[in-house]
Design a protein around this nucleic acid. Structure first.
Lengths: 252, 252
DNA sequence: CGTGCGCTTGATAATGGTCAAGACGCGTGG
DNA sequence: CCACGCGTCTTGACCATTATCAAGCGCACG
């Protein structure tokens, strides 16, 4: 784990920093799937002005923790994060994985405190969007307000997908669905839809899908035996996409 | 099923109607928990002006169906509704129950089409809030914009609660949690927290909690045997609230 | 008064959890 | 560079919870 930045720090509070890593929304490779989507370039500049970029999060560092004051929502620029809640009896429930271009932290709006924690699964660069600034800007820019409503609504429909998955589908179907979801998120970024590296552990997958590690592992083995997937630890290659879709047995 | 209104109609498209049933947001008993929360009375009048009230929905009538064009969100004035999705293989997943003062339909914003269906579990009066009007008003009234962001965020955190429940908790814990949730929603309306009528069937409960009817029924019997609940079909009386909370084993 | 739907209860079966042991890979330190 | 050790993953045997199948009850409604 090489430290390639001058400053150190714990990462819990992101410090604004001047090395801006050559990015702004206008030239960001992700702007067609991220928050700037649907904005005119003049408007993008206004959004740009409120966004704060800071040094990357190292693996296992927290972006925020359950109960922290809610100040901002965050866009993932690179790397992956997981969001999770800790239940009263100490168990962990992973509520989502966040890939580049995706927004997290919106569950903190309702109570002005984060309802979940977010932690980096690998080194991750983040754009911080202070929420009060975003609110003001939204009042001025109907298309931004609309887009942010849509983002929140998407979070709701995705959670409902997961609810259905947990409630109605077998272990095989759950794991297959997650693989398809990850595949389509790579595809959206113009990366390979059939060959990718899982950023999360088996434990995280199980925790997200309501299964134990052992069950997840067995499902992978079964898929491999059926020549649907080639699994080499975290490296995944989808060999039979129609077969995987059939196994998932769901639209999403 | 008695029709006590002059007009007939299928209820899928609500017709504005002039019998206004003596209500407006200013005098509505629910305004402290519903959308007008946190608005000044001048502002309430502006909100009032965009809200459309219409004849009540009869039991089993749909407010909207999955795939319908998204036009409005809805506030429940009286009665109860369930929201549900139909999976590819024809099974039904109940994603939520909506009691008076609660808002539904927000899952339609992201794709301009409703992502779920909503149906009345009993006769229900509804306030329809056209979304484009709400957006315009939100731009003008920061506190309304804020409040609506909060409502959506709450929907997200509630869905995450359900995800955790489905993923980590036993049948006993799930049913106990639902009973506590319903109890607190009655309490919020200043109704009895310990004695109430369930508006939904055992099938709906099972469908919501990821359990079969038989399991739900067995859990109720067990709770009754333990003198935690008195169950008479849909009439529920909570005899031992601490015991129920212990059984639920969750904060919510 | 009968029919049907919703609810309950019992017997049996299957899916996934638990416990246990071993393999593999990776980073650390000698 | 290799050896060690720990954490992650895999596999197997057994067990528990809940689903499935089946039957009967009771209330509401025609």
């Amino acid at each position: 784990m090489t430290i390639h930045l001058a400053e150190s720090g714990d990462g819990a509070v992101l410090q604004p920093c001047s090395h801006d890593y050559q990015v702004n929304c206008g030239n960001c490779r992700l702007n067609s799937i991220c928050l700037p989507l649907a904005l005119e370039s003049d408007d993008i500049q206004l959004l740009e002005d409120i966004i704060q970029r800071s040094k990357p999060l190292q693996k296992n560092q927290h972006l925020y923790r359950e109960g922290d004051d809610f100040q901002s929502v965050y866009a993932v620029r690179s790397g992956t994060l997981k969001a999770y809640k800790t239940t009263d009896d100490g168990k962990e429930q992973v509520t989502g994985f966040y890939f580049p271009g995706e927004i997290l932290g919106m569950d903190g709006i309702s109570n002005n405190a984060h309802a979940s924690s977010a932690k980096a699964l690998e080194t991750a660069a983040i754009c911080e969007i202070p929420f009060t600034s975003l609110e003001k800007l939204s009042s001025l820019m109907p298309s931004l307000q609309r887009h942010f409503f849509q983002l929140m609504s998407r979070e709701i429909t995705e959670d409902q997908q997961l609810i259905t998955l947990l409630s109605k589908n077998s272990a095989d179907e759950r794991v297959a669905s997650l693989m398809l979801s990850i595949s389509s998120r790579y595809a959206r970024r113009k990366l390979s839809a059939t060959q990718f590296r899982l950023p999360m552990s088996r434990v995280d997958i199980g925790n997200y899908l309501g299964l134990t590690v052992e069950t997840v592992s067995r499902v992978f083995s079964r898929m491999q035996k059926m020549d649907i997937l080639q699994v080499d630890n975290k490296e995944i290659r989808i060999l039979d996409l129609p077969g995987l879709q059939k196994m998932a047995n769901v639209a999403g």
